[in-house]
Design a binder for these strands. Structure first.
Lengths: 143, 143
DNA sequence: TATTGTTATACTCTATAACTATA
DNA sequence: TATAGTTATAGAGTATAACAATA
């Protein structure tokens, strides 16, 4: 097994998994459903509130104008609140609204369930192996 | 280790890997670079030429109007050719042009290298473990 | 009638360029 | 001058609805 062979596996499987996650979120029957990117923004803010715009942009690896627009939409939808940072007046302080927390939990948990459902048939050692592998990949690719 | 815990790992790591792949493709210094979705279309067509539009749309899990537009752009860029199917005249036969093959190979291989580079430091058993894990996930999630 | 693909329309994601306000 | 964020603009990805051509 060479790194290149393993890399080919990564390039095959990751898009398939992304497609599954995307479909999961979409088929949850929400009236106005969240995109995968929006979910990631909310998930980040849940763990790191308040964050400034640049921090969220870096996390998703998008430019600041892109994130500015995404945040504006989430604010319009009542999921994120934007307040001023009194110490650094260039910065904005982003955090989830109560409704944002609620929607995030709902969508995140529902998606988690559909993923967990697929993993049901696996044995304990398989789950351990997969989790360990994902841990390694997460460390290597989450610079 | 429960399926839910493993599912949480999936939801954390998959977006990080996607971000890495996207950045890899983008930072290859092409004048007009391919998106991850376009790369997947070309990759599919390389293996299954000719394919009709619906087949490609199903593979990426997008609607036919969406794929129709994407294909149109790839045709404009000279990467895909659209011919008529004489037996089933509703269908179109999609395949890569020589230029499409060339660009696909170039972008795919360059991306593969950046992924393989990250995997360099891993031991043989780790690579085997990761590859096996990805194989399982690929089977479970690639319905 | 059902299927294949396209066109029209609209919204989100994404980037670059140019800008404002603050440091 | 440099940084944080916004606005303007453009293009890609995405969907639904309505359509044409074919089966």
């Amino acid at each position: 097994m060479t790194p290149a062979q393993c890399a080919a596996d990564v390039m095959t499987v990751v898009p398939a998994m992304t497609r599954f996650l995307r479909a999961s979120i979409r088929h949850q029957g929400q009236p106005q459903c969240l995109s995968l990117s929006q979910l990631r923004v909310l998930y980040f803010l849940q763990r790191r509130s308040p964050s400034c715009l640049s921090a969220v942009a870096d996390y998703l690896d998008v430019t600041r104008p892109t994130m500015s627009v995404m945040i504006e939409r989430l604010v319009q939808r009542g999921l994120v609140q934007r307040t001023n940072d009194p110490l650094e007046r260039r910065r904005i302080a982003l955090s989830l609204t109560p409704q944002g927390k609620t929607e995030l939990d709902q969508v995140y948990n529902a998606t988690l369930l559909t993923v967990a459902d697929r993993l049901q048939g696996l044995s304990e050692p398989e789950l351990v192996q997969i989790s360990a592998s994902l841990g390694i990949l997460g460390t290597l690719f989450d610079e």
